[in-house]
Each structure stands twice: as structure tokens, then as C-alpha cells.
Design a protein around this nucleic acid. Structure first.
Length: 109
DNA sequence: ATTCTGACGTGGG
DNA sequence: CCCCACGCCAGAA
């Protein structure tokens, strides 16, 4: 692989480490990986892991708490449905009380 | 090789 | 908080 496999590997690891009922941002993960400038690559990693149900990609949103990636999931509200199923309040693709449900790997780990 | 786009983030206004 | 511009890396056309 040309790119650092550790980047993707860690992305999956962190995603799996996200507690139930919590969410994090791509930038937080990217920063934890040491690639804060490549937050987009985290999203790309999630896309690659899209086939792995063990990776709760629905718990990963952008820093605004907006479900930007819901469009990549099946249907149109699967991501929101999953989040609400975990007790997270979501309105119009926007996570409410983000500061409460937010989970930062750098902070918690 | 060049250009654009994209599950993003930050800084200035 | 919003809007605008730039940076960032990887992949597709």
C-alpha cells in the first residue's frame, strides 16, 4: 500500500471504540491519528469500511453534529434511525445536545 | 499529467 | 451562529 495502513486501521479501531449512545467527529479521529489536516480521509476510511457492520460509521459525524454521511447509508434516514436507537436526539440530520453526546478519542483515550 | 469532487476543519468577517 | 475562502489527501474522469 502506498498510503499508511495505520491510518485506516486506526480509523476503524477508534470507530469501534465509540461508546454506545455517543458520537465523534472526523476531525477528532483524524487528530487522534495525527492527520488533523486530513479529516476527509477519515470519511474515506469509513466509506471503505462501509461493508463492515462492526464499524458504527453512523456514530461518526462532522464537527457540527450534522449527519453529512447519511446519504451514503441505505435509505434516507437509516443513520438517524440508528442514532436515535441509541438515545441520541437527531432533528433534520442535526444532532441535538452535541456537546453532551460528543466523544473525543483524544480526550477519552 | 491536469482538473474536479468529496462522510472535513479552521480562520477571518 | 452563518458565510466565504483556503488547505488537505485520495480517487475518478
Amino acid at each position: 500500500m502506498k498510503t499508511e495502513p495505520n491510518f485506516f486501521e486506526k480509523s476503524y479501531e477508534v470507530a469501534k471504540l465509540i461508546p454506545h449512545g455517543r458520537v465523534t467527529s472526523y476531525g477528532a479521529i483524524a487528530k487522534y491519528l495525527g492527520a488533523a489536516r486530513s479529516a476527509r480521509m477519515v470519511g474515506w476510511a469509513m466509506n471503505a469500511s462501509h461493508g463492515d457492520l462492526s464499524i458504527p460509521a453512523h456514530r461518526v459525524v462532522n464537527r457540527k453534529g450534522l449527519l453529512t454521511g447519511k446519504h451514503h447509508f441505505e435509505g434516507t434516514n437509516l443513520m438517524q434511525q440508528l442514532l436515535e436507537s441509541e438515545g441520541i436526539v437527531v432533528v433534520e440530520n442535526q444532532i441535538q445536545d452535541l456537546s453532551t453526546v460528543f466523544w473525543d478519542p483524544n480526550l477519552e483515550l
